[in-house]
Amino acid sequence: MAGIYKGKYASLGLFLALTALPIALGIGYALLRSMGLAGLGAEGFTLRHWEAVLSGGEFWRSLGLSFRVAGCSIGLAGVLALAAVLKAPERWQRGGLSWLMYLPLTLPAMVVAFVVFQMLSGAGLVSRLAYKLGLTSGIQDFPNWVNDSWGIGIIAAHVFMATPFFIILFAQLYQSERLGEYAQLAATLGATARQSARRVIVPVLLRQSFPTLVLYFIFVMGSYEIPLLLGSQSPQMVSVLTIRKLQRFDLADIPQAYAIGVLYMVFVAAAAVFLLRNNAEKTSSTC
């Protein structure tokens, strides 16, 4: 134990070997493969796969959908969680409810997607209820809430997963930032409850949780299981598109899959650097 503990260089070396090295190898191979320089049926240096990805609409629609879904999911879950915490800030900290809030975190994304499908699909629970209530006359009347091009099912699943997480996050911040005391202070300065929420509590919560929200946004953009089960054939979210192209038998699709993978990495890395450039230190301390 003490041997490992002393081994600063061994420790940092291991870290590099398990983070930087695989990422570098992965990106390197993806670049070679997408440029026809490696892999089965390598045709020699070419940019045609990149041109196909960049000029075809599929990748951009996919990126747009990923972005939209992440934005809607985070926005909805954020608003719900803010409302819940503002309504009853102390409720979520102790007692049975605080325990319940952790429960959804014990459900993997795939199970949430499965449950959402069983609820929202044409033959799902909500559709059956609508039929029983006489609102629809059968499966075909029910709107497409799963496998739809807007990603309604995907968003519903992500909102279900993100809302409890954000409630826990905001409730903890409410306590650690002593927002109850700030709200009282604001009240003595003449603020109404609404004003102190709008001018003090919400801005502090959003500012302090910003790095986490950004990371969650990126996490939703790159999510796989949920869009795999609840997404439509076209457009597909980026992860699903990449893996689908990778597993095609058409050899021309595989280099495109690698090009998309690289483009996506560049895109999110740039977004993360841009959004978190001033916040890096805070992110690490929230863990």
Partner: peptide, 23 residues
């Protein structure tokens, strides 16, 4: 160092796996 630790999540584990499958 910490930025490096975040990369597998930022890049999405599936995409990372796709680029590493060959190795």
């Amino acid at each position: 160092w910490l930025t490096l630790a975040y990369l597998p999540y930022i890049f999405a584990p599936v995409i990372l796996a796709a680029t590493l499958q060959f190795f």
